[in-house]
Design a protein around this nucleic acid. Structure first.
Length: 837
RNA sequence: GCCCAGGUGGUGUAAUUGGUAAACACGUAGCCUUGAGGUGGCUAUGGGAGCAAUCCCGUGGAGGUUCAAGUCCUCUCCUGGGCACCA
């Protein structure tokens, strides 16, 4: 029978299994003693939420990229820490439990089991002994410990605040979880509600989030999003005294230069002075307006096109001009930003629209830009040209408004009329959740302790909380009593109060750790983002029963060198992790202030129909099927070959087949090519150069996360090898080494089959410098910028020779004949260009 | 509305950073192999003119800089993402 190529097929199932089993048997790197920053590589993937649906083909894109990097770094002799875990607390498991009755702990563990198997099938080289699971008491115990530390450091506090309330999920949402005024998860319109909640003081590091970005190797768009999120603006606080009253209205402005043109003052409906300022004449109208405004959902409020408002009946005085300014209320002013009050003037679109609507007289004169030099201008009035140039405010003639601002503030500060102020959009982080499936907040509320504290020395600070009108002392659970375990048998249907409140045992059968009288527990759980804000520390000593992380080992391994994950975490998770790191550093637990040195984002893999992969569209591709049909290496290489790592791109089974075809060709090469012990001879410069180029390209491409072109280059090398009949051993080995990070199963198998010794895990090919030269290259010859011929030349050929032989090309000569040569441009090794008239 | 990122063949994309546009694949066509099938092999494949050598056009659009532009500048259109009454 004829020896048909397809009888030599690469049996990926067998090969995958063999090498995956080997990885699991391998004793992985054990952390011992100090590791220098230069020797280590902490390569981390954002840990997944283990959903019941398992991974689809888009999830592992990032894992494959980081795995290639990890394998490459090991080959380079680095000590690599490459762990994986599960962000296992959270709403979906709880919602699923409500629907199916299956306890979240059970469904979550099933999902984790499945995730792990799926990841192992792809051949991801994680250190499986280091898995963490945020819903495990051994983990959340330390999340609770962290809460206590923040509380000690006054970075966790309890406050009454208007909170985003999702009526469907019956829970409070963080600002970050509200999208377009709707719940991020269930799309219900979000309402506002006043509740006492736990907050983390994110804002204490507002400036550091900005300055710290300078030293981080992160994608620029992500940095920008963080900057926008922090939303720093410099301006001034100005006090507007009330006419005929003792109170003043504090106003924040970034446009102090427009203060002379202030025409009215606007308060947010929530502003505390609203009641006091409203005259009896206006009382009814104001009450109606304020009620309507607070009833509105955030969406309704932000989507309003008109600047509606209501006059309070009172007046304030411009502190500079002493002019009477009517005080209005409008819901375009946000209670939670700045001072919740603004002054209105003509330069601002919203102010302008409102003034127009209610016929409030404006005070700024806007002059056409060709009118700059004209007089006269009222003594204290600020005038602008219509392109925003300040032309007169007395002392600052000729300055742009941006130039004038700091000077005006300085001037006003001298007379006590204003003070500089930096304002941030960033808010503190609301971490309380009225949900079951999360880490319990380690606090009890004790009435007895509050009573007793009245008799203590006046200065002893005791925090108290108000729950349903009753007052309690806030008592943190002592560290050695952690974890506060989540009760397992509980009715977790949402009713608006935390499900934990329904557990008598959890809620009431508790004694105060301080006075040992009966107390009640905090029944809220923590936002799952708290769990994920520190998990990268737990991987260092995941089984440590005495501490959250081993401080010495953390010093060795952190910060994370490469962090790989989706861009959807640009602000939330990444900012929370930065906050936690800074807080722990201030607490003396860490010696660094930024958790992630490098960040790389992977793109989305869309369905073959170019839509987001989802059950709803029926376009989900399961990696298990791909792996069993085409092999783990085909999946890995194809996902890397599809396009730039960070881009979104549609799945294509045909493309996958193409990559599989390539691996098959590599497999067959081993059959066909004779292997010689001789080094490549001088006669095979072509192959030598190709090999060198491939080493260079694959190496730099991996380091730059340009895996798609690395695969292309490996394909080019394969095409080159196919032209040979025999090959030297060294070339062959180099090829397998280069292939190994991408297609580890195939590469290891081929190495072994070729009867080389054990695969060298800590070795990476070097470019053979001596071989890297003397190949002729082809360069274009242009006439007037158009290619008219090609030249085969030595790279080092001198200019004069180049010009001469270029002129002799028949195709070029024809153009140059009888023409005056104006200029000749020669870039050696690149191009020759003749410029003629 | 504001701020980013990006528009290159039928498709995914590449381009040594200003130097032969389309590498590497997919798809398609023809041929080969096979009893058959294709996750097998070979060849061709941007558009147009021509028997051909060869020529013209071509990187969303319009201008510009340059010996030379996918790459730089100005304006403009479209797509994706983020923020959104932040004073």
């Amino acid at each position: 029978m004829k020896d048909r190529p397809d009888q030599e097929r690469f049996n990926h199932q067998q090969v995958d299994k063999k090498w995956q089993a080997r990885w699991l048997q391998t004793k992985r790197y054990q952390i011992t003693g100090p590791v220098s920053a230069a020797d280590k590589a902490y390569i981390l993937d954002m840990f997944p939420y283990p959903s019941g649906e398992g991974l689809h083909v888009g999830h592992p894109l990032g894992y494959i990229g980081s795995d290639i990097l990890a394998r490459y770094m090991r080959a380079r002799g680095k000590k690599v820490l490459h762990p994986m875990g599960y962000d296992a607390f959270g709403l979906p498991a709880e919602n699923y439990a409500i629907k199916s009755g299956l306890h979240p702990a059970v469904s979550t563990n099933q999902a984790i089991e499945r995730f792990r198997q799926q990841m192992q099938k792809i051949g991801l080289s994680y250190d499986w002994d280091r898995e963490v699971n945020s819903s495990d008491p051994d983990y959340y115990r330390w999340t609770q410990w962290l809460f206590l530390k923040l509380y000690e450091m006054d970075l966790a506090y309890r406050a009454k605040a208007p909170v985003n309330w999702c009526p469907k999920d019956q829970t409070v949402l963080a600002n970050e979880q509200v999208k377009d005024g709707k719940c991020e998860r269930c799309d219900s319109l979000v309402l506002q509600k006043e509740l006492e909640q736990w907050f983390f003081r994110m804002t204490s590091y507002a400036d550091e989030y900005l300055t710290g970005l300078a030293d981080l190797d992160w994608p620029e768009p992500i940095k920008l999003m963080q900057r926008n999120w922090v939303g720093r603006s410099e301006g001034a606080l100005v006090s507007f005294p009330m006419e005929g009253g003792s109170k003043t209205i504090e106003v924040f402005t970034t446009r102090i230069d427009t203060i002379f043109g202030a025409a009215f003052v606007v308060l947010a409906p929530e502003h505390p002075l609203v009641g006091e300022l409203t005259t009896s004449m206006q009382a009814a109208a104001v009450t109606t307006y304020v009620e309507n405004a607070t009833k509105k959902t955030p969406l309704e409020r932000t989507s309003a096109v008109d600047q509606t408002g209501i006059f309070t009946g009172s007046y304030a005085l411009n502190p500079l001009t002493k002019e009477r300014l009517p005080i209005w209320i409008s819901d375009f002013v946000i209670g939670g930003y700045g001072t919740g009050a603004v002054f209105g003037d003509a330069h601002d679109e919203r102010d302008f629209a409102m003034a127009k609507r209610y016929d409030i007289p404006l005070k700024v004169t806007v002059l056409p830009s060709d009118n700059r030099q004209k007089e006269p201008i009222l003594a204290l009035e600020v005038c602008f040209t219509d392109d925003g140039v300040l032309i007169d405010s007395g002392a600052y003639t000729g300055l742009t408004s941006a130039e004038a601002r700091p000077k005006i503030i300085e001037e006003l500060q001298k007379s006590g009329l204003a003070q500089p102020k930096v304002q941030y959009k960033l808010r503190d982080w609301l971490v309380s959740r009225q949900r079951y499936w999360g880490a319990p907040i380690p606090i009890v509320y004790c009435q007895n302790c509050l009573e007793n504290s009245k008799f203590q020395i006046p200065n002893s600070k005791i925090d108290w909380a108000e729950i349903n009108g009753e007052k309690f002392a806030i008592i943190p659970i002592p560290e050695d009593q952690l974890p506060v375990r989540l009760p397992m048998d509980i009715d977790f249907r949402p009713t608006g109060e935390s499900p934990l409140a329904r557990s008598t045992e959890f809620h009431h059968a508790v004694t105060c750790p301080k006075c040992h009288k009966q107390a009640r527990r905090e029944v809220d759980t923590m936002d799952t983002f708290v769990d994920s804000s520190w998990y990268f520390l737990r991987y260092i000593s995941p089984h440590d029963q005495r501490q959250a992380f081993d401080r010495e080992e953390v010093k060795n391994w952190l910060p994370v060198d490469w962090y790989v994950g989706g861009a959807e975490h640009a602000v939330l998770h990444l900012l929370y992790s930065r906050f936690m790191t800074k807080a722990l550093a201030d607490g003396g637990y860490l010696t660094f202030r930024e958790p992630f040195t490098r960040l790389r984002n992977q793109g989305l893999i869309l369905g073959e129909d170019n839509r987001k992969m989802s059950k709803r569209w029926g376009n989900v591709v399961n990696p298990d099927e791909v792996v069993s049909l085409y092999g783990a290496d085909a999946l890995r290489c194809f996902e890397m070959f599809m396009g730039p790592f960070q881009d979104s791109k549609p799945w294509s089974t045909n493309g996958l087949i193409g990559v599989r075809r390539w691996l098959e060709r590599v497999w067959r090469l081993t059959k066909r090519l004779a292997i010689s012990d001789q080094r490549l001879g001088e006669d095979n410069k072509r192959l030598q150069n190709l090999l060198n180029k491939t080493i260079q390209k694959v190496t730099s491409d991996i380091e730059n996360f340009q895996f798609n072109t690395a695969i292309s280059q490996l394909m080019i090398l394969t095409n080159g090898l196919e032209k040979e009949t025999s090959i030297d051993k060294a070339t062959w080995q180099t090829f397998f080494q280069l292939l190994a990070p991408f297609a580890p199963h195939l590469a290891h198998e081929l190495w072994e089959k070729s009867s080389f010794s054990d695969f060298p895990d800590e070795s990476w090919p070097e470019v053979d410098r001596a071989a890297l030269k003397d190949e002729t290259i082809i360069i274009p010859v242009q006439v007037n910028g158009r290619v008219r011929g090609q030249l085969k030349v030595e790279p080092e050929m001198p200019k004069e020779t180049l010009i001469q032989i270029a002129k002799e090309l028949p195709t070029v000569g024809a153009y140059l004949k009888d023409k005056e040569l104006k200029q000749t441009i020669v870039v050696p090794g690149r191009i020759v260009n003749f410029v003629i008239l």
